[in-house]
């Protein structure tokens, strides 16, 4: 799939923002006053800039509000509602912190809603049977893991962050390895795509058009596959190994920022791979 910068920005930033809200919501001794406001502002900035990036992906932005209408079937629509609910709940909770009367249950609801939003984001991809690498329960698990890890690093939760870094790294490695086999496991081949299997083994003879088209640009992105292994190693180092090593090596809190910056860079890279490596079955019709 085409790794659109708008979608990479969206999933990374909003994942981080909702992860932060999730940690903020379950903090038993939450910050108060100005500190609470600063955390809330940061979370909102991340979530909203992510959502704004996702709006950039739309070709007809003026109609974006229509996306709230189909929550019964569409994960994209559900995500819009979940994001709105999270921001409203988080705002209410933030207000209670600001006023010095923390309503902890409201915080727990914020956490739930934030995780629900991340689930909706992940399900947009996991629901697509046409992209076997994504069509797996590990996709929401991985989105949860990244959001909680980033949130823990951002919110300065040292030990949870270390634990989550290890867990997310393990999950990501398994997803990379298992993901490589999912297309074959899906059973979709050029033979099933053309129905010509019983006649023999088909192969593409010539394409239907000499130029490129939307389908090839959007869904048959093959450039990334060449350097996939190197990029995976780099993403793993940036997202997990280096932040964990820095966290272990020092207890000084301002290193957290460097950890976070490294982690986010790694998440950007892994998200780029998430899109770029995903093979859509339509590529079969074009012999790719």
């Amino acid at each position: 799939m085409h790794p659109a910068p708008s979608l990479i920005l969206f999933t990374t930033l909003s994942g981080l923002g909702f992860g932060l809200l999730a940690w903020l919501g379950i903090d038993l001794s939450p910050p108060e006053g100005g500190t609470a406001f600063a955390w809330l502002a940061l979370a909102y900035a991340l979530c909203l800039s992510g959502l704004a990036a996702s709006a950039l992906h739309l070709k007809r932005r003026e109609r974006a509000l229509k996306a709230f209408s189909q929550w019964r079937t569409s994960w994209l629509s559900r995500e819009a509602w979940a994001a709105l609910a999270t921001l409203l709940l988080g705002g209410g909770y933030g207000l209670s912190l600001l006023l010095g009367y923390p309503l902890l249950p409201l915080g727990w609801l914020t956490t739930l809603a934030a995780l629900g939003t991340v689930l909706c984001t992940a399900m947009i991809y996991a629901q697509l049977k046409s992209v076997p690498r994504w069509h797996h329960r590990s996709t929401p698990a991985l989105f949860f893991a990244y959001a909680l890890t980033g949130g823990a690093l951002l919110y300065g939760q040292r030990w949870p962050a270390l634990l989550l870094l290890a867990l997310t790294a393990a999950l990501q490695c398994w997803v990379w390895i298992d993901g490589d086999r999912r297309f074959a496991r899906s059973g979709t081949t050029l033979a099933s795509a053309t129905g010509l299997g019983p006649q023999g083994s088909p192969r593409e003879l010539f394409p239907p058009h000499t130029g490129s088209n939307y389908l090839l640009r959007e869904m048959v992105f093959v450039v990334a596959r060449r350097h996939a292994v190197k990029l995976r190693v780099l993403a793993g180092l940036l997202a997990f190994v280096l932040p964990a090593a820095l966290l272990l090596a020092t207890a000084i809190s301002y290193f957290n920022f460097i950890c976070l910056a490294l982690h986010v860079a790694g998440v950007f890279l892994s998200r780029w791979l998430f899109f770029a490596e995903a093979e859509h079955v339509v590529g079969l019709y074009y012999g790719r």
């Binding site: 799939m1 992906h57 739309l58 070709k59 007809r60 932005r61 109609r63 974006a64 229509k66 996306a67 994209l76 947009i124 629901q127 697509l128 049977k129 046409s130 992209v131 979709t188 795509a193 088209n213 939307y214 389908l215 959007e218 869904m219 859509h280 079955v281 339509v282 019709y285």
Partner: peptide
Amino acid sequence: ADCIGCGLCAWACPYGAREM
């Protein structure tokens, strides 16, 4: 008149039947 051009339907179609 209702399409926002998000492209998700084209992703969901295994046949490549939809084009932006």
